Computed example of a mutant assay.
Amino acid sequence: MANQIRPIVIKKITRRSVHHGGQWKIAYADFVTAMMAFFLLMWLLSTSSKAELQGISEYFQTPLNIMPSRGDGTHDGTSIIQGGGQDLTQQKGRLKKYNPEADTKPLNLKAAQAELERLDKRRLEDLKDRLERLIESNATMRQFRKQLLVDITTEGLRIQIVDDRNRPMFALARAELEPHTRDILQKLGDVLNEMPNKVSLSGHTDATPYASGEKHYSNWELSADRANASRRELVAGGMSEQKIMRVVGLSSAALFDKDDPINPINRRISIIVMSKKAAAALDKEGSETKKIKSGTVVNSQTLRLADSG
């Protein structure tokens, strides 16, 4: 039995590989979370008002002395543990009241208004350049470019279509537009509709009176009818009728050539792309007139009218 040969037992142990590379994912997730919290904090600070930022600063200077009161009002804002830093809410022994108007920096309205006017003027100058290019590129308008006057005034961009002895815009002593005048106004209406500004139209005549007299129909009616006819052509060209703020006839009261009242250049249609300031002033004038008619406003002008009546 002692010499009996024991069988040889061979044990094969299969080692399984264990991956230990997943720990970096946890670290990376913690890093991304921290970065997200950091950017969220930066965003909150950038959108906070001056008063809120001051409150946050005061909290970190005295985190234990400055504590919110309870709903029952029993907490006095003190703690048995002394906090550090200077309490900026205390001033001469009294609690400083929060004043949002004092903490908020007042807006510089004059600077903002000046910036809006600058941008408005820039748009009008760009429109002037575009109209000048349109006149040169269009065959009909280029033919009459000497009768198209474009300039910038205190009211806005002014486009004047003046008459010529050989190329009148209207039929003689009538409000009927010539075919080339219709084309010009319709092309202008398409361009002006792209601007947000309001538009004002005025009709002008020369000082030549009617041979039959001006009792029933005068240059005043003629200038108003011509301005209204021009308005219809602008609308037909694509301009919104809501953009038109004023249509007036001025007869020969505002001559282009004051030295020669019967000069054909005095017969013209003036289109003004109004600046924001001029449109606001005209709108205010209309509102005041409406109040006067309704009897809600009484001023010296109203009283003079009442006395003269």
Rank of each mutant, 00 (worst) to 15 (best):
D225H: 10
S218R: 01
N138Y: 09
H180C: 04
N266V: 00
M274S: 04
L201T: 02
H180R: 09
A227V: 06
Q23T: 06
A229Y: 00
A211L: 11
M36D: 11
A306E: 11
V199S: 06
P63K: 01
R15P: 03
S137W: 01
I135T: 11
M239Q: 04
Y28H: 09
A112N: 12
N65H: 10
D225G: 05
Q91C: 09
G73K: 10
S69P: 03
V191W: 02
L119D: 11
I135R: 07
S69C: 00
P261M: 03
L157D: 03
W24V: 15
G237E: 00
H180I: 11
T296Q: 13
S294L: 12
M1V: 13
T74E: 14
L134E: 08
K121L: 14
A2P: 12
K258E: 14
S294A: 15
L172K: 14
I5H: 02
S300G: 10
G238I: 05
K12S: 09
L172N: 13
G286S: 12
S46T: 08
I5F: 00
V9C: 00
K121P: 00
G238F: 07
L157A: 04
I81N: 10
I161G: 04
S308Q: 13
D72R: 06
K128D: 13
T153P: 05
T33D: 03
E58I: 05
N193A: 10
V162E: 04
F31M: 09
A281R: 08
E58H: 06
P100Y: 05
R231I: 02
L44T: 10
A281W: 02
K25H: 07
S137D: 13
T33V: 08
A254F: 13
D307K: 15
A229W: 01
P100E: 02
G213V: 07
R16A: 15
V199R: 01
V273T: 14
T33H: 10
N65D: 07
A236Q: 05
